[in-house]
Design a protein around this nucleic acid. Structure first.
Lengths: 229, 229, 229, 229
DNA sequence: GATGAATGAGGATTCATTCAT
DNA sequence: CATGAATGAATCCTCATTCAT
């Protein structure tokens, strides 16, 4: 992370085009490509457009990525950094209640990942996954599994500490993920909005967590038999 | 070739090429097109392939749909039949508890819609919505709004009958929708599976509903202040 | 001319489509086709459009004309009626001056041919002649040659009677034809108009004839050596 | 194949396929396209053919002209260079008789324009003008108007110097134009030839000018009332 | 005879990819 | 290294033509 993105500003203010550091090229291309792939999809994204947005010529893209597919794969790989170790440490050290932890976890995810272009990768997995099976596997291994594991650990902590009931963790994890995916969908598509008001992510998270923790019902069943399967 | 399409083939094997099926054609084409659009996306679906799958020639597709875009729009429209009136009636007559009703509602949705090809439309809205703004609006009006309204009515019933707490309905609706969308995603993409085991939809629904109703927490806050915003 | 076009009105007012006399069909098709070929050219005219304008279905056109080319040829042939015998007789009986005769000749041509759709055939010969060599030959033989001969006869009469000078008839004929062709061009194309005012044909003819007869010059050369070549 | 295009081939026979000729390309394409459009018409000219004749591949044509229509328009524009200023100057300096001047004017036009491929543009205006209204307007403004003005100036000079009678200039101009158009027609179509002998342009011009100047009649009317309208 | 559904060859256009400079 | 001119495979779409009804 130190040297990879020294100047996020892709339209370097005073520097002439050609002087730009060569080492930065691939990164700039990946940024441009991510934007376009997310916005328009794989097929509708033209290599020339990627080049133009990165301020280079068409041929240059092929200098760094041998084909459009390779560019796509590189885009996905680039944006799947294993930040989970860092996060794991962060959450191992968490001291509050597991309920707070779950809320914190989702909020953090939203502000660090969900709200950024990186969440576009998830959209790409939905849209284009069919054409890139190996990339889907890669995404599963590098993102989905560690992500699920992290959430599972939070929930397990709650159970272990007696804060959460002994629910089926596989499904409980899906509940959390579903909420996150819905946020991403509403970010990338107008379709699920009510009217045309975009979803307020923080309020959404707060609510989902609240419902997930306390449930909708006013009464509790006497025999607590939530465990399914 | 003998066994490859034993029954799918609607045109009798030895029948003459030029068949007259004006009434049936559009429907057959729409079925073929839905499959392909969902499977490969809009751009990657070739008109000739649609034709082939429907057992007609390239030109015939254009006889019924003036362009690929029109075909796409027709596919979406075709699969968005307003089944909501029927459902509304069905649910107005429901007599059980609201908790059961919610469960029943989701299960019914899954078996009638979610598990069928029609759910592919939702995937298409995510993948291709960007290129068809008017179709997204159409989908919003014809599917999302009525769908949300139906769910809201179920939840409102629970509140009115004192079964559910007085939560913010907008967000509560999103919670239900998120669960449904996740089912669709897991149907159309391997990405969110754990390992390569597909999600068991009925168990998933049962669990989500259970958590949504009772919450994860073992204890209830004394002051029940779930209402947010 | 007597029975060939009993009802020029192709949209028979009260008669249902199907009742129309079958014998009239080919004629109606040829009328429709002439209009369209002249207006849009051979390539841009669609058989379906011809059919529609004639009030029949696409297939019917092929019942009468085996191909688009045949239809075109039939259109041309149909509109190249050898009316020259009739005209020859008419002009053999002419008793006025040859100057008047020339004027009369051109005016008559304009009102009987030039101003009607038949002149469109000339435009078609220009536009599409390249693709139909045999039709061009046919047109040459049936229209151009007799037409030239007729004009030549008028001019020869003037020379014989001492009214016209002994000019080179080949070229003099071309002078008359050029004037007629220009009228046709100005009928079928905006290009050679001054401003957007269409040419007044009768005034144009009067003027061209006047100049052709008397010349532009104020003085006459002493030795009258107009004969060239 | 060896002798088929010995010298027309602008790309050296053994040269590598990928040649860089950015400056020359558009011109070469326009030449090839003019030939083909004139010869076969707009619709019947295939882009690939244009490419082949210019010695490039299909795609290259689209590199320079975004569509077939644009290519057509460019062809027309390219061949309508305002040579009229140059000509105006030339004719302003003319010192001979106006009769000679008229003859000279037409002969010059023939050798510089009429006999070249540029005259094909006029044919295109006739054939394809209907589909390109804006191009017709352009042609009117850039070619027809200046051309008419130039001829008018010559005739006006004759009148002013007492060489020509005070005829109606609008129509007199048309007389000259008709003669020129007929030459073009006879160049581009066999139809108006007598037998199959092509017209001798210089002799034709000499004769038309002679008739136009001196008229056909042996006698002059006493009262010289040629002015019409 | 008429009809119009169906066909499929033909041609414009796009764009990933190559490669001479 | 970078460029961008050139390529040509791929695909949409048109429309003359066929033929079962």
């Amino acid at each position: 992370m130190p040297l990879s993105k020294p100047f996020t500003d892709t339209t370097a203010s005073l520097a002439p085009k050609r002087e730009r550091r060569k080492e930065a090229r691939p990164g700039e291309l990946l940024v441009a490509a991510l934007d376009l792939f997310v916005e328009k999809g794989f097929a509708a994204t033209r290599m020339e457009e990627v080049a133009a947005r990165a301020g280079v010529s068409k041929g240059t893209v092929f200098l760094y990525f041998s084909s459009k597919e390779e560019l796509f794969k590189a885009v996905v790989r680039e944006n799947i950094s294993g930040r989970f170790e860092e996060w794991n440490a962060e959450f191992l050290a968490y001291e509050g209640s597991s309920a707070d932890m779950l809320h914190h976890c989702m909020t953090t995810w939203w502000h660090r990942i969900g709200s950024t272009q990186a969440s576009g990768i998830s959209k790409l997995m939905i849209s284009e996954g069919g054409h890139f099976p190996d990339i889907v596997t890669f995404y599963q291994n590098e993102v989905v599994q560690p992500g699920h594991a992290l959430i599972r650990r939070v929930l397990q902590r709650g159970i272990d500490r007696g804060e959460f009931r002994d629910v089926d963790l596989d499904f409980a994890v899906y509940g959390v993920v579903a909420a996150m995916m819905f946020l991403i969908l509403s970010k990338h598509s107008r379709a699920w909005r009510q009217g045309d008001v975009a979803l307020d992510p923080d309020a959404y998270i707060a609510n989902q967590v609240a419902v997930m923790l306390q449930g909708l019902c006013t009464s509790r069943p006497i025999a607590d038999s939530l465990r399914s399967r």
